[in-house]
């Protein structure tokens, strides 16, 4: 299995939860929105963890650089994490306008981050890593828990 297939699938999964949570919030179904949002946040955070703990170190090893792309990706993860907090707060306050506004920012932020990973970082990993190494990383990522 390719690394990109595995991780891109996770991106799409997160997108689905995101869209569902947003729709629920726009209909003011707050309880369900909270549940789905939590699902979205946890899935995304676990995905970040997989990248930061398993994929990025390997990428840094392969390219011999730790202040390049991975640094940018981690920085963007931090931005997304910051938004999670604000979105949770808006949900708690039942503030639809501010939740929808934040989720709009979240979507673009996350999507452009994903796009850069999918088109550059993952693609580079798949190109540079031997097959058995890829399976090994995927196994290790699979083993990670929230």
């Amino acid at each position: 299995m390719q690394i990109s297939n595995y991780l891109i699938h996770e991106h799409r999964e997160c997108d689905n939860f995101f869209a569902k949570a947003e729709e629920l919030a726009s209909r003011k179904s707050w309880e369900e929105a909270e549940k789905t949002f939590l699902e979205f946040a946890n899935k995304t955070l676990l995905h970040f963890k997989k990248e930061e703990e398993e994929l990025f170190p390997l990428f840094e090893e392969l390219t011999g650089s730790s202040d390049g792309p991975t640094q940018v990706m981690k920085y963007e993860h931090d931005q997304v994490r910051g938004l999670f907090g604000k979105m949770a707060e808006a949900l708690q306050k039942r503030d639809m306008q501010s939740y929808l506004s934040l989720s709009e920012s979240m979507m673009i932020l996350l999507q452009q981050h994903n796009m850069k990973e999918e088109q550059m970082l993952y693609a580079m990993c798949d190109r540079m890593m031997p097959m058995e190494k890829k399976s090994e990383v995927i196994e290790r990522m699979e083993a990670l828990k929230e």
């Binding site: 650089s65 940018v72 990706m73």
Partner: peptide, 10 residues
Amino acid sequence: MFQNSGLSLE
């Protein structure tokens, strides 16, 4: 290598 890869903060 990364100068042109778009993965920079700026």
